[in-house]
Design a binder for these strands. Structure first.
Lengths: 233, 233
DNA sequence: TCCTGAGTTTGCGCCAGCGCAAATTGTTCC
DNA sequence: GGAACAATTTGCGCTGGCGCAAACTCAGGA
């Protein structure tokens, strides 16, 4: 197996604060893999063996209920760490990770976590900062689900996607991976029918353009109005 | 200021795995405070200066939306660590912590976190395990809010409270701090009216007994049936 | 090119649960 | 003991959004 190149990670925020040598040392223990679109990097409830960093692509983190309903916990973008069960003392993954498009992923065996976090405290701290952010985001989502109407929640979800993974095009900000009405419904606790109706309405109003597994936000400003349920003249 | 006695923490899971000497050493940096019922230990958005362990009482962690609506993120029970913004690299508290009854709390300045976690890895690991559990619980709540009806969510919330903070009495499991219909509504994303109706119905069915700021679960088994929305003969 | 299947749109009817309002009950503090 | 307040209960009407069903549209493969 050829050694992995440091350039893979040197630009990622997670590894900032490490010297080039340290970056190379961390990489020595990593294994690189490709995952085809719609395949699983790991499955909910499975024994956690590794933690991961996404090098290229987009990943959907999904929780499935006992009766088979799915809820999308979050999307992972390039450069993010995920599957960090080890760092939090869990032995199984609480959700599944599915490649939303073809992906390249680095993996480290969980057994190395104590060493890595011990030898490179900056790396450990960055990871825990990420965990903190996610906890807070998840709580924000609970608050939204508790206090907002469906239209507001869907608007918020689109704005978040546009900010985190949006790609600027001449006609607006396009979400740069395939996302269906069903996916958006599973992010916001509603049905694909309701999402479809909302998107149709917004398209009529010129706020978005959308197609099959594709959404482009044309007027983020007016989408914010929907998200905050303000006066919609 | 008198030194704090090691017996305060020696029985807590969080400090298991530390020698008596280490426990005393950690305690040397702690400050003990009392908080009267309904007073704040810290406020949402405030600069995070300390992290805490609850020695006695019950604490409500609350998030308030810009327009003043409140959502209860969780309850903290005796022995739990909370306000761990420092460990997650945040500089402000993402929610307020309110004493649900008179409380005794230990506080450590945030500045000590790196030292403590470094010198006592067992303690750091236990904390991150707690964070992991909370992240998972919060995600479970998102799933519940997305997929369950109000009756199921309220039943789940009561069962969780009964398990975590229930006190066995001759008539059932009593939640051992004052909790209003409004509180339960803020935990489950509904209104106090709906909660009141549900509790009335369950009381008619002999599943619970409830009074002003008080709920006693008499038949947890039948409450599980409500939580899972199974056949309610 | 046509076929097939997945993704999407839209109409229609219904109902869980909210909002409002008023009555009632229990607690606390003079 | 009683006044004042906080918490709870309950009735009533309405509606946001779901469930079902059917039609439609697009992309990719044979």
């Amino acid at each position: 197996m050829a050694a992995l190149d440091r350039s893979l990670i040197s630009r990622l925020p997670l590894f900032q604060g490490l010297t080039p040598d340290e970056q190379s040392e961390i990489l020595r223990d990593a294994r690189s893999s490709r995952y085809a679109k719609e395949t699983a990097i790991f499955e909910q409830e499975a024994e956690a063996h590794s933690f991961f960093v996404l090098i290229a692509g987009h990943i959907r983190v999904v929780r499935t209920t006992p009766d088979g309903q799915q809820v999308i916990a979050r999307y992972i973008s390039e450069g993010e760490i995920f599957g960090v069960a080890a760092a939090l003392g869990r032995t199984t993954y609480p959700a599944s990770a599915i490649a939303a498009v073809d992906c390249v992923v680095l993996a480290w065996p969980n057994a190395l976590w104590p060493d890595l976090a011990g030898c490179f405290p900056v790396f450990g701290a960055a990871t825990y900062r990420t965990v903190g952010t996610r906890l807070q985001e998840t709580q924000t989502r609970v608050v939204e689900m508790s206090t907002e109407q469906v239209e507001q929640r869907v608007a918020h979800a689109l704005l978040r996607l546009a900010n985190q993974t949006g790609r600027k095009t001449d006609s607006g900000i396009e979400i740069d991976f395939p996302i269906s009405r069903q996916d958006i419904a599973e992010m916001t606790g509603t049905t694909l029918h309701t999402v479809s109706r909302l998107l149709s309405k917004w398209e009529d109003n010129g706020i978005i353009v959308s197609g099959r597994q594709k959404v482009t936000v044309k007027d983020a400003h007016r989408l914010v109005v929907r998200a905050e349920n303000r006066d919609k003249r």
